[in-house]
Design a protein around this nucleic acid. Structure first.
Length: 883
DNA sequence: GGATTCACG
DNA sequence: ACGTACGTGAATCCT
């Protein structure tokens, strides 16, 4: 038997658009409605296996309904451009799916659908009608099932006449009467004012139709009677408007809706354009790529003991390769094996890790360590760490696919090979998840499947390298890549492998003291609250504070009361318990994250922690740090700052030396904006917040008090973050108007900064991206959004990224240069940590004097700006003392 | 796994 | 009218 699926195109597109976050691909095309539409189509094809398929769209703006009622659909918000621009994409998508589309000028999709379902009814063919609009229920019949989307788009609720009867106690036809009485705000259909679904249902259960309700108005009572009598005409018209017209004149050949499946090639190319990577993979369309890149079966050879010599010969002087590592933290992970691809002979080679580590593997290990043998990898940093822990020092990497892809789009969250293959039109490759499974289900497959997959990786890297190389050139990021990021990867690995020594015993003692204090505070909190509860649970805490103790709740989160520090500080005067909770929170944080968290990461053999700097995470070009994060060790509050006392030199008689840039972001801003006043402040080496206070408040230095300086400092922060009145007012706890006055006053003085802020936003709109001084790039597709919030966010990002990103460029330069200097000057001092604007070293006593000058000198001269860069240095026996 | 909170620059 | 300061990672709770 035939089965026709009809989709209410406009309705489903709308549903998808509002149900999903505003996705966009890297060229700024919005894709959320298309994505939602696609998932729905795939699901329907898979689950329903339709023999016939059709999508109906509204055509034109004026329909016969407007002639009868000019207000029809008036007051409806205009379709946002982010959605309008997706309709052509949806239509293109449907072509790839080979699903017929239907629209007729002067009629809405509803009417086309109404007519088609009538015809199907008459022919006795089965129809599944999919819409987001409950009005469609009027079309349900023995042959027509109506599926209405609910919450989001993935789920639908199906209705046949019996189910409508069950849920509403109405027949499908009575759905029209329901709307006649209720009206519909979204279509501007009035109905009877004051009659909602409940009342309407009650009336219909009693009287059956609108007409009958009106005829029996006299039997109604009180207010209801008045309303019905007064709006009788409105109810009749509303019913008429709500009635789907089922006699649209159209030529219908049932066979023209026949569905024979989608065009895989067309769909794959569509998904690539839209960057629907997950769908490409899920449908295994990654394989059906552009004709220029057909998937080649690989000639895989698993290398054995006596094959090593031949392998080395095949590898030659330059080869794409892959190191398969299991585990998140490369400082303790397992290596599965290595794979290589030889372009010339189209040969793939797989080396199990055990072979590499055996005696027979020695020549290959030497080859890996030979800097003259060039290698191209995905994530050399990770490979280098994992291999180093196994005693093999990887050298000679001259291209890194992951690092390159990060520079091309630092916001790309999927820098795996299968992700990049989808994005850059490379031959398809399975996602690791598909081969290994994930979480508890992770398993290595048999060696044949394993070697095939890993060799496919090396092969994909081979295909990726030339593509990414060209893209880097196009974006003028080749120097950033070859001269900065690639060398930096090696510098980072060196720092991380070295690790930093911790006094674990001392940390334990600190933790024991914390535990005592926490115990005491906890007892006191229970006493003051009059009950025991989990202080760590914001939910329970909220109930205690705002319900039991009745404190005023003024800020909410998605799930309930907010209990963050800002709220608690305002509540502190009301009840002693609040201060105790703040205190508890502070110490609990130290205990769990810094004492227990750090102790877990200390290597018992060496007493060191080895952080893992991530070079491809932050959208601005900064590094991030994991396992443990050593970029957020407490410093602002003395209690927490004490944690820094356990970071000590790894050798007796050595010191910790730390140097941090002074106001690097504002100096960068002075340079980029060329603002005369700001440049002058730094050229004269003034305290920038005091100077800002003088200029903003118009007073001499002697009259700047600490409060004025504090406010000026907040304004400077705001400037760097991409200022908004609202943000500044929140930060300073002042009104928006006052914040606005500050900002205006600031810009009146720093006019070059104002011009920069205006220009950078315009540039971002024109180009779709912003760049740092070293050409690091960040795309901002939402800069043209019609949604105020999204657009504002993108504008602030446009202002902030060149500043934060250039500062990141500078300290990265300093790190690479510093590593070179330590080596060239035969210094024993070691660079250990980077904290965004600070570098930390361990230094033998006899090098203290040298390093005290060298480090600030290298940092200050890393990049030449039109204002001086300055780094302050200090040293001591612990990180705490190097302040 | 999302939400909340809080540590850093 | 709209309602967020920019960039991160980790611990904890709870659905």
């Amino acid at each position: 038997m035939d089965k026709l699926i009809i989709i209410d195109g406009n309705s489903i597109a709308n549903r998808a658009f509002y149900a999903l976050p505003l996705l966009s691909n890297s060229s700024g095309l919005h894709t959320n409605a298309v994505f939602g539409f696609t998932t729905m189509l795939l699901k329907l094809i898979e689950e329903e296996k339709p023999t016939h398929f059709l999508v109906a769209f509204d055509a034109g703006k004026v329909t016969f309904r407007h002639k009868e009622y000019t207000e029809y659909k008036g007051g409806r918000a205009k379709t946002p451009p982010e959605l309008s621009e997706q309709f052509p994409l949806i239509k293109e998508l449907l072509k790839a799916f080979q699903i017929p589309q239907f629209e007729l000028s002067g009629y809405e999709a509803d009417d086309i659908i109404g007519t088609l379902t009538r015809i199907a009814d008459e022919k006795g063919e089965n129809v599944l009608l999919v819409s987001g609009d409950k009005d469609m229920l009027q079309l349900a019949s023995d042959h027509v099932t109506v599926a209405i989307t609910r919450k989001g788009i993935s789920e639908v609720e199906r209705y046949n006449p019996a189910e409508i009867q069950e849920k509403y106690g109405l027949s499908p036809k009575q759905i029209i009467d329901l709307k006649g009485l209720m009206g519909d705000t979204s279509d501007n259909i009035p109905g009877i004012p004051g009659v909602g679904e409940k009342t309407a249902l009650k009336l219909l259960h009693e009287y059956g139709t609108v007409e009958n309700v009106l005829d029996n108005a006299a039997n109604l009572k009180g207010k209801m009677k008045e309303k019905v009598e007064e709006h009788a005409q409105s109810a009749r018209m509303s019913k008429e408007l709500a009635t789907i017209f089922r006699e649209v004149p159209m030529e219908t050949e049932w066979s023209s809706f026949g569905y024979g499946g989608y065009d895989g090639q067309a769909l794959a190319s569509m998904f690539r354009k839209l960057e629907f990577k997950s769908l490409l993979e899920k449908m295994d369309l990654g394989a059906s790529v552009e004709p220029s890149e057909p998937v080649q079966p690989l000639d895989v050879q698993i290398v054995t003991e006596d094959g090593i010599d031949a392998l080395l010969e095949t590898l030659g002087d330059s080869v794409p390769m892959h190191v398969e590592i299991v585990g998140e933290n490369p400082h303790h992970s397992e290596i599965v094996g290595l794979s290589f691809y030889n372009e010339e002979h189209a040969k793939s080679l797989y080396v199990p890790f055990a072979l590499l580590q055996s005696d027979a593997g020695a020549p290959l290990r030497a080859w890996l360590e030979d800097a003259a043998k060039k290698k191209q990898l995905l994530d050399q940093h990770r490979a280098e760490l994992a291999l180093a822990w196994q005693g093999v020092r990887l050298r000679g990497v001259d291209f890194d696919v992951q690092l390159a892809a990060y520079l091309l789009d630092p916001t790309d969250s999927d820098l795996t090979l299968s992700g990049l293959a989808g994005k850059y039109g490379l031959p398809g490759i399975k996602a690791d998840e598909e081969v290994f499974g994930k979480g508890a289900k992770f398993r290595l497959p048999d060696e044949a499947a394993l070697s095939e997959h890993l060799c496919r990786k090396a092969y994909t890297i081979a295909r990726a390298v030339p593509v990414l190389r060209v893209e880097l050139e196009k974006g003028e990021m080749h120097r950033l890549f070859y001269e900065l990021e690639l060398p930096l990867a090696g510098v980072l690995a060196e720092m991380e492998l070295r690790g930093i020594k911790m006094d674990a015993a001392d940390l334990k003692v600190f933790g024991e003291e914390l535990a005592k204090q926490l115990d005491a505070i906890m007892v006191r909190i229970y006493e003051l609250a009059g009950m025991e509860f989990n202080i760590n649970s914001p939910k329970q805490l909220g109930e205690v504070l705002f319900e039991k103790l009745g404190l005023p709740a003024w800020k909410k989160t998605k799930t309930g009361y907010s209990t963050d520090a800002e709220v608690l500080e305002k509540l502190a005067p009301y009840n002693e318990v609040v201060g105790q909770i703040l205190n508890y929170r502070q110490l609990a944080k130290l205990q769990s994250t810094y004492v227990e968290g750090l102790l877990k990461e200390v290597r018992p053999e060496t007493g060191k922690v080895h952080t893992y700097y991530r070079q491809t995470i932050a959208a601005t070009g900064r590094l991030s740090s994991q396992y443990p994060n050593l970029q957020n060790i407490p410093i602002r509050l003395e209690e927490g700052r004490k944690i820094r006392k356990v970071f000590v030199p790894s050798e007796p008689g050595w010191y910790i030396l730390a140097a941090d840039y002074s106001q690097i972001e504002l100096r960068v801003l002075a340079h980029i904006s060329q603002d005369e006043k700001l440049k002058e402040a730094f050229l004269q080496n003034m305290d920038i917040h005091t100077k800002t206070a003088m200029d903003v408040f118009g007073v001499p230095e002697s009259q700047v008090d600490s409060n004025m300086r504090r406010q000026a400092k907040a304004v400077n922060f705001g400037i760097v973050y991409g200022i908004s009145e609202y943000g500044l007012s929140q930060n300073l706890d002042i009104t928006r108007k006052e914040a606005g006055a500050f900002i205006e006053q600031y810009f009146a003085v720093f006019q070059g900064v104002r011009k920069y802020m205006d220009d950078i936003v315009k540039d971002a709109r024109r180009d779709g991206y912003v760049t740092t001084m070293l050409q690091r790039r960040r795309y901002l597709p939402e800069i043209t959004a019609s949604n105020f919030n999204l657009r504002s966010f993108a504008e602030r990002t446009a202002m902030n990224t060149p500043i934060q990103g250039t500062a990141a460029d500078i300290i990265k330069l300093a790190m690479v240069q510093m590593a070179e200097r330590l080596k060239s000057e035969n210094l024993r001092s070691r660079m250990l940590l980077q904290v965004h604007d600070e570098l930390v070293f361990e230094v033998p006593q006899e090098e203290l004097e040298t390093m005290k000058t060298l480090v600030p000198e290298v940092m200050a001269s890393a990049l030449k700006l039109d204002v001086p860069l300055r780094a302050d240095v200090d040293y001591g026996l612990t990180w705490y003392d190097a302040k």
